[in-house]
Design a protein around this nucleic acid. Sequence first.
DNA 1: CCGCAATTGCGTACAACGTACTCAGTGGAG
DNA 2: CTCCACTGAGTACGTTGTACGCAATTGCGG
Lengths: 253, 253
Amino acid sequence: MYAIGEEETVGDAEYVNIWTLPERPARGPKPVYSRAQITEAAIRIADAEGLEAATMRRIAAEIGAGAMSLYRYVPSRDNLIELMADRLMGEIDLTGVPSGDWRADLTRYADGLRAMWRAHPWIAAVQRSLPGLGPNQLLLIERLMGVLDPLVPIDENLGLMALLNGYVEGAVREEISAAEELRRSGLSEAEWMARGHAHVDRLVKSGDYPIFTKIVMEARRPHLSRDDQFRHGLRRVLDCVAAALPPTAQPAG
Amino acid sequence: MYAIGEEETVGDAEYVNIWTLPERPARGPKPVYSRAQITEAAIRIADAEGLEAATMRRIAAEIGAGAMSLYRYVPSRDNLIELMADRLMGEIDLTGVPSGDWRADLTRYADGLRAMWRAHPWIAAVQRSLPGLGPNQLLLIERLMGVLDPLVPIDENLGLMALLNGYVEGAVREEISAAEELRRSGLSEAEWMARGHAHVDRLVKSGDYPIFTKIVMEARRPHLSRDDQFRHGLRRVLDCVAAALPPTAQPAG
DNA sequence: CCGCAATTGCGTACAACGTACTCAGTGGAG
DNA sequence: CTCCACTGAGTACGTTGTACGCAATTGCGG
């Protein structure tokens, strides 16, 4: 009787919340490595060769450990990637935010987020659905949402920050797209240009895509620098934010 | 001499542009399957069980083929995913766009994009850096960018559409996050609530994260329905677009 | 100070993945 | 008709994440 369910191995994927799991229990030999060290090594590899190159064996080799040793510190590779993502959030420096000048604060955040993405383009491939609840992420939420917190209701605030995040991510994705695609393909730049542009040129020459053609022309000879383009778009977003604020809180017109 | 490069197998990853590669050459036995059929089967599996479940063997089984047969139609799994993504873009119906009423057109696009994301949440895990140049994507670009094309310069247009896309993606990511996380974890809803919420509750009760606490409270008892929230945010984005247009083109104040 | 038990690093092993290679069979072009 | 470019598919390989087990190490109760 009761043969079904006897084994209790129902779920195949054991879900683990890394933020509830303490790094070190007690007693036993001194650990040689650490979560932080492993996370750092993984980020170093991902920066240099992409996220897919950051395999467990490769990371272990980077710090001079055996492959399975990592599992004494981290439950799974997915959890490690969560740690990596949170570590990256810590790179966005928001000390002193909120300062009282919301426009300056949000600009600083946008610049910081952009810099982080450009330094670690592989973050585009992570992008979890839930925001993640690591210490750095939480601190960031507190500070960023604190900028507009007394001025607008919380749901309005969330919407505006989603808008800001969306703008920055979209803009940076465009910036890093060419470089990332090039790296992923594994081709030399000349070869990649030859293959990729051949198709684009064919589309352009066909005459069927007039607006796409305009985009290509603009992309090949942009009017503004990357930085200016970003600043310009950001100003537009911030104007949008300003419009959503109550009229009593408009420091710099 | 010239030993180096003799083999020509320099790169390990052979980059293939799927859009230049014709599906059928000529001559030989009639193919039993087709790219479209394979793409459709893959999408069906991804919809039901997530993108990671759409393995080559699984897709092949779905259409009753051998695993390796798929490679007669598609060079690699990555290319197949490109096909899937482009197929999804075709779900966004923009016939008759641009219509002359830019606000209506952009609303229709936003609603269509949102519906597509909600129907195929795994698209969040794809998100290539480059936009991709499949037929559906190209058609979408032509129509969407055509909405504002004569009104604003092309680089401005690109920025505004990036803003719109960013808003929709951000909003939908939040909408689907809980469901996706639940599915990925493989737990029952009750179990997931118990584990996930326990951590959130601890953070809330600690008192260290006042703004995070506000967010949680709002999320648990939202003031507006999902749809209303989306509409509200979208209106704000469109107001932002309106502000960037020249004063001569303001049809509906 | 001495064992005991908890915990370490890590070698071995396995299942699942993408996909290279191979080959018998098929069917349009000459 | 013959020919050969093409088909579907079986087998096999390299790489991945990770379960398991074992010898070595160390803090703690006595």
